[in-house]
Design a protein around this nucleic acid. Structure first.
Length: 483
DNA sequence: AAAAAAC
C-alpha cells in the first residue's frame, strides 16, 4: 500500500501516536502534501474540510522539528519554531488538540492562544517555552506586544483557512504578525476554496510554492445532496421543520447571516419546542463552548449559527445543514455545507431562497460550476388564505400572520443579550464590511429588475425552476403572480 | 447587506 502511514518513515514517536489514533492509510491530501512538506518547500494546498488537512501539515511539520534542530538555539531554550494561525477560536482549539495528540510521545511542546479567555494561563505556557504555537491573530498580537511570545526563531508558519486569513478583515493583523517572523522560513497555506484573487495574493507570501489540489478546489463534496427551496422569511422555519420531519433528520446546523438574526431565530425555534442553541461571535467564549458541546452531546438538535461555525469545525455526523440566509459570499456556501457529509458520510444541504437572494444563488452556481434548481416545497399546513404580503414591506408593518400572532414582540428584551459581549476597538482600523477579494460590484442589467416590483398575487407552486441562466429573473419570477 | 479577530 503506497498510501499507508507506515511508508512515510515517520519518527517512531509520531508513528506511535498515529497508530494509536487508529490511522493506517492516508487521505489523498495527506498522501500528496506530507512528502512535499517534508522537503521544507512552501505549499499552497487546496482540500475539502474533513479530508484530514490538519494531519497533512502537522505530521510532516512535527517530523521536521524533530529531525532538523535549529542550530542557532541552545537545547535549553524553547523558541517558537512553528506557528499555526486560524480564523476562529474554535478552530484554533480543535487544531491545537490534534497537534497535541500527534506530538504526545515527542519532547515537542505546543500551546494554543486565542481571545475570550484569560491571558495569564496562556502567558505561563508561553513562558515555559513551546515549539509549536497555535493561535488566532488578535490574541497572538497581544502576546507579542506583551513580549510573551517571541517569534524571531519561527521556521514554519501555517495559514489554515487561508482564504479567510488573507481577506480584508484579517489581513492587517496577519501582515503585522508576519512582520515579526524571519524572512527565511517555510510557509504553508491551506484552504478548501482558493479564489483567483486569493491565489494571486497568496503568491506574494510564498516562495516557489508547490500547489497541491486533491478535490478540485471550490468543488462541493459529492456526498452532499444540495437543495434550494424558495421561501418567504415567514415560511422559512416551517420549511425547515417539514424537511426535518419528512426525512426524519434529528440534528442540523442552521446558518444565518447576522448575529442578531442568530439569536432571534434560535429563540423562535426554541419557542416552537425545538431543542436549539445559538452560536455567534458576540456570545462569551463560555457560551460558545457550551453551545457546541450541547450539540455534540445531542442535548440540542439545532445549532443556529453565523459563519463563525462555517469553517473547519469537525463535528461527526451532522446530517443536515440549512442556510436560513443565503451567504453573502459564495465561498462561504462551500464552507457551510462542508459541515455535513464529512468523511464520506452522506449529508443534506438545504438553502432557503427569497427573491432578493437570486443573485447570490447565481454566484454560488458559478463558483461550484453546477446547475442549481430553486424548488418550491409545498407546505402541508399552508392555509389557502388571502394573497401573501408584499415583498417590499417591512416585516413590522405587515399584519401578523397565523401562528406568530400575538407571540412576537417588536423588541424582545432578550435581544439585548446579543449585544456585543466584548469590547472591540483600539488600534484596529474601522471595520470594512466589504470584501474586495470576493465581492464583485453588482451592476444590474437594464433587463435585470422587473419594471415594477408588484405585490404578488396568489402564489403559484412550481415543481422546479432552473436558476442556471439569468437566475435573478427566474427566481424572482417564481414569486410573481400568474407567471 | 455581515462575520470574524484583542485588552
Amino acid at each position: 500500500m503506497t498510501d499507508s502511514f507506515s511508508n512515510l518513515s515517520l519518527a517512531p514517536t509520531l508513528a506511535r501516536a498515529v497508530a494509536e489514533m487508529g490511522y493506517e492509510s492516508m487521505t489523498p491530501i495527506q498522501a500528496q502534501a506530507i512528502p512535499v512538506v517534508l522537503t521544507g518547500q512552501d505549499v499552497m494546498g487546496a482540500a475539502q474540510t474533513g479530508t484530514g488537512k490538519t494531519a497533512a501539515f502537522s505530521l510532516p511539520l512535527l517530523q521536521r522539528l524533530l529531525k532538523h534542530e535549529n542550530p542557532s538555539t541552545s537545547p535549553a531554550r524553547h523558541p517558537v519554531r512553528a506557528l499555526v494561525l486560524l480564523p476562529t477560536r474554535e478552530l484554533a482549539d480543535q487544531v491545537a488538540q490534534q497537534i497535541k495528540m500527534y506530538a504526545k510521545y515527542t519532547q515537542l511542546r505546543s500551546a494554543v492562544v486565542f481571545g475570550g479567555m484569560d491571558m495569564k494561563p496562556q502567558t505561563l505556557e508561553l513562558k515555559k517555552g513551546v515549539e509549536v504555537l497555535v493561535a488566532t491573530p488578535g490574541r497572538l498580537l497581544d502576546h507579542i506586544e506583551a513580549k510573551n511570545a517571541v517569534l524571531n526563531q519561527v521556521e514554519y508558519v501555517v495559514l489554515d483557512e487561508a482564504d479567510r486569513m488573507l481577506d480584508i478583515g484579517f489581513l492587517p493583523d496577519l501582515q503585522r504578525i508576519l512582520s515579526f517572523l524571519p524572512k527565511q522560513r517555510t510557509t504553508l497555506l491551506f484552504s478548501a476554496t482558493f479564489s483567483p484573487e486569493i491565489k494571486r495574493l497568496a503568491g506574494s507570501y510564498l516562495q516557489n510554492p508547490i500547489t497541491i489540489e486533491v478535490a478540485r478546489p471550490n468543488e462541493t463534496a459529492s456526498t452532499v445532496e444540495q437543495r434550494f427551496y424558495a421561501a418567504q422569511d415567514d415560511d422559512k422555519r416551517r420549511v425547515i421543520r417539514k424537511v426535518l420531519d419528512d426525512r426524519g433528520i434529528k440534528q442540523a446546523f442552521i446558518f444565518v447571516n447576522s448575529k442578531l438574526g442568530c439569536g432571534r431565530l434560535a429563540r423562535s425555534l426554541e419557542r416552537e419546542g425545538l431543542r436549539t442553541a445559538a452560536l455567534h461571535g458576540d456570545k462569551s467564549q463560555d457560551e460558545r463552548l457550551k453551545a457546541l458541546e450541547a450539540f455534540k452531546k445531542g442535548e440540542v438538535d439545532l445549532l443556529v449559527c453565523t459563519d463563525v461555525a462555517a469553517r473547519g469545525l469537525d463535528i461527526k455526523d451532522v446530517p443536515a445543514v440549512f442556510n436560513f440566509d443565503v451567504p453573502f459570499n459564495a465561498e462561504d456556501y462551500v464552507h457551510r455545507i462542508g459541515r455535513t457529509g464529512r468523511a464520506g458520510a452522506s449529508g443534506l444541504a438545504v438553502t432557503l431562497v427569497s427573491p432578493s437572494d437570486a443573485r447570490l444563488v447565481g454566484d454560488i452556481e458559478k463558483l461550484i460550476k453546477k446547475k442549481l434548481e430553486v424548488e418550491t416545497l409545498q407546505l402541508d399546513t399552508r392555509p389557502a388564505g388571502p394573497a401573501p404580503e408584499k415583498w417590499g414591506e417591512r416585516a413590522e408593518d405587515r399584519p401578523r400572520s397565523r401562528a406568530s400572532e400575538g407571540r412576537r414582540r417588536e423588541h424582545d428584551p432578550r435581544d439585548a443579550l446579543d449585544a456585543p459581549h466584548e469590547r472591540r476597538g483600539g488600534f484596529r482600523p474601522a471595520p470594512i464590511n466589504r470584501d474586495p477579494f470576493f465581492q464583485k460590484p453588482y451592476e444590474p442589467a437594464a433587463t435585470d429588475v422587473p419594471p415594477s416590483w408588484e405585490p404578488s398575487g396568489p402564489k403559484t407552486v412550481r415543481s422546479s425552476i432552473s436558476a442556471n441562466i439569468k437566475p435573478k429573473r427566474k427566481v424572482a419570477a417564481l414569486f410573481k403572480s400568474g407567471e
